[in-house]
């Protein structure tokens, strides 16, 4: 291998590595923060890898439990609380260390230290503590998840059915101003959501669609129909017309040809469009704040929670809750596309 290609290769891999790090590091930070306990958040320096358990030291001094946690920084036990109140201990364990124990368990474990010797033991951390807390302190979180799914579903349905029909027309029928139209579609996309949302609120109020998911989906779809039309028009024009013509010759009507030939061939593209639609609906909080504050989506709930809470580990858990469905959706779909039709390249 000559030197030049070696340098080129190195630069290439460095570039790829940078890209991967730039994407993965923030994601990993969110993920690890979301399983931190309160105690770990204030540890300095912060640990990349969250703890899964705590090494504890309990001393019975002056009729009180001296409760210490092993700190890797100090390489020693750090005294956190002195109390004989079991309930207080239980709450402390839960809130600061994400360790879930009952009073009886604590009493049984800790009373050993009353013999005079300090007691050393390890408690497992509840890694999902923040997630559970998120759902319990954020009222109506379950309803919000359902709302988000419904809003995203409607957005996909509306954008895809209108957008792909428009895209098909642009791709297959020659009419005046066809090129201009596909440009205008992009311009529609450039409007900020808020600019569309406020006038839309007036209409939605009139139709009693405010604070409903379908109303929200209609607003999300405004930009997405345009984007879907734009993407699908290029997908449809990439489908060889002869494939449709063959279908006509072999006995199909126009409608049958569209549903049996054109649409399935456009599926990979349509899935990509539905992903855009999904993400647009799923991630939005501003439009939801304006249009549906009384019946919030998950993203709006998290937006508010992050805004009002000082516990960053809770916010991180909320963010992960928001990201996960999008990730799962994307990966399932990507696999599905790859397995279709004997790995056809489109």
């Amino acid at each position: 291998m000559n030197q030049k290609s070696l340098i080129a290769k190195t630069v290439f891999y460095l570039f790829i590595a940078t890209m991967i790090i730039a994407i993965l590091v923030p994601f990993f930070l969110f993920l690890s923060t979301s399983v931190y306990s309160e105690y770990e958040v204030y540890e300095f320096p912060r640990k990349f890898i969250p703890r899964t358990s705590f090494d504890l030291k309990i001393d019975w001094v002056d009729d009180k439990y001296d409760f210490s946690v092993f700190s890797r920084e100090m390489d020693d036990y750090e005294l956190l609380i002195q109390t004989d109140n079991l309930d207080k201990l239980r709450r402390f364990l839960k809130r600061n260390l994400s360790v879930q124990k009952t009073n009886e368990e604590i009493n049984r474990d800790f009373s050993v230290s009353k013999n005079g010797e300090p007691l050393y033991l390890t408690y497992k951390k509840d890694l999902l503590y923040n997630y559970k807390t998120f759902f319990s302190i954020t009222n109506k979180a379950g309803k919000a998840v359902a709302n988000s799914v419904i809003a995203a579903g409607w957005t996909i349905l509306i954008s895809l059915s209108f957008g792909s029909l428009a895209g098909y027309a642009i791709a297959r029928y020659k009419f005046k101003g066809r090129e201009q139209l596909s440009l205008i579609l992009l311009v529609v996309r450039m409007f900020p959501a808020v600019a569309v949302a406020i006038p839309m609120l007036v209409y939605l109020l009139k139709m009693n669609f405010d604070n409903t998911m379908i109303g929200l989906a209609i607003v999300y779809s405004v930009g997405n129909i345009a984007l879907t039309a734009w993407i699908t028009s290029s997908i449809f024009s990439g489908i060889n017309v002869e494939l449709e013509e063959a279908s006509y010759v072999f006995g199909a009507t126009k409608l049958q040809t569209f549903t049996k030939i054109t649409l399935p061939l456009a599926v990979p593209g349509l899935i990509a469009c539905s992903m855009y639609a999904f993400l647009a609906a799923w991630n939005d909080s501003i439009t939801a704040l304006i249009l549906s504050n009384n019946n919030p989506t998950l993203s709006l709930v998290i937006y508010k929670a992050i805004g009002s809470s000082s516990a960053i580990q809770l916010s991180a858990a909320g963010a992960v809750i928001l990201i996960m469905p999008a990730l799962v959706f994307t990966f399932i779909i990507k696999n599905y596309i790859n397995q279709m039709w004997g790995e056809v390249k489109l």
Partner: peptide, 14 residues
């Protein structure tokens, strides 16, 4: 009642 073989074959990839 005609059938056709296209230059591009036009067999459906899916």
């Amino acid at each position: 009642g005609v059938s056709m073989i296209f230059q591009s074959y036009a067999i459906w990839p899916h």
